[in-house]
Simulated assay, not measured.
Amino acid sequence: MTINYKGTYKELMQSLLGIFRQRPDIRLSSLRAGLCFGSFLCLWACLAFKLSGAPFYAGNNIIGLMGLCGVAGALTASIVGRYVRILGVKRLNYIGCSVIIVSWAIMFFFQNTYTGFIVGIMLMDVGMQCVQLSNQTYVLTSVPNASNRVNTIFMTTYFIGGALGTFLAGFFWHYLQWTGVVIVGISLTMVSLLITRFAKVLQ
């Protein structure tokens, strides 16, 4: 049962920092999810640049329609949620990161086709659901009497990871175009994968 916090706002903030310091599993679960979110946002930060150039020269209407491919992620959310307990958090992170890396590979090798991007986006969303839902489920159930505070830590880290991915994607696009974006996306996902592999406190 969730217990409402009874202290002052200052004490609430201090309790957040206390959980953050005392629970490396929550820190690292949030971080590996945030890194994958950064990889995810690399795609959306630069997809319009890619599709507006050769060989597509796509207009805003076509670029906007690509967002509909993200429906795949929404449709798989409930399925992934059911498998968190069956497969376990660590295994779902391996699966999710692997799917994200495969999606980047498809969007690199087939970067001059709409099919490559449609398949890549759909796989990216599925992989992202695996990573986000497994980690968020874990952190929310790890401290049941402070789920809102733990979720604050998770979402703050998550969006910092997203901001990092967006920044790096823009920076590398400037110098290496789509190849640079793919490098950033795969690199962030690989770091997340390495955290899962070597951090002993993680499930």
Rank of each mutant, 00 (worst) to 15 (best):
P24R: 14
N60K: 15
F20T: 13
L35D: 05
S30C: 10
L43G: 05
L51M: 05
L35Y: 05
R32K: 06
C46A: 06
W44F: 15
C46D: 14
Y57V: 01
A45R: 09
L47C: 04
T8S: 12
A33Y: 07
L68V: 02
G34S: 13
A45C: 08
I62F: 02
M13A: 08
P24S: 08
A48Y: 04
L47S: 03
L43C: 12
Q14W: 11
S39F: 06
D25N: 14
A33K: 07
F40S: 10
K50E: 10
L68F: 03
G34A: 11
L41S: 08
Y57F: 05
S29C: 15
A48S: 09
L35G: 08
L43F: 13
L43K: 07
A48W: 06
C42R: 11
G34V: 15
F56N: 01
A58K: 01
F40I: 12
R21P: 09
L31N: 04
A54F: 10
K10L: 10
E11T: 05
I63M: 00
G59P: 08
S15N: 10
M66Q: 01
G59A: 06
L31H: 04
G67T: 07
N61D: 15
L51P: 04
R27C: 04
S15R: 12
A58H: 01
L35I: 04
C69S: 15
M13Q: 07
M13R: 07
F37V: 08
Q14V: 11
P55D: 01
L35Q: 05
T8H: 07
L31P: 05
G53E: 00
M66P: 01
S39I: 07
P24Q: 13
C69P: 14
A45Y: 10
S15K: 15
R23T: 08
R23M: 11
I19L: 08
G53Y: 02
P55G: 03
D25F: 15
I62G: 01
C46L: 08
R32T: 05
N60R: 13
C42A: 06
C42Q: 12
L68K: 03
T8E: 04
A54H: 13
I26E: 01
L41E: 09
G38I: 02
A58W: 00
G64L: 00
R27G: 04
I63A: 02
G18P: 03
G38Q: 00
F20L: 06
L12P: 13
G53A: 00
L68C: 07
F56W: 00
L35H: 05
L28Q: 15
M13L: 07
I26G: 05
F40H: 09
L12A: 14
R23D: 15
S52W: 03
L28R: 11
A58R: 00
R23P: 09
N60T: 12
F56D: 00
Y9Q: 12
G18E: 02
L28G: 08
L12T: 12
R27F: 03
S30N: 10
Q22L: 12
L65Y: 11
Y9A: 10
E11P: 04
N61C: 12
A54I: 10
G67H: 06
T8P: 07
A48G: 07
L31T: 03
N61P: 11
L65G: 06
Q22E: 08
C69W: 13
G34E: 12
A33Q: 09
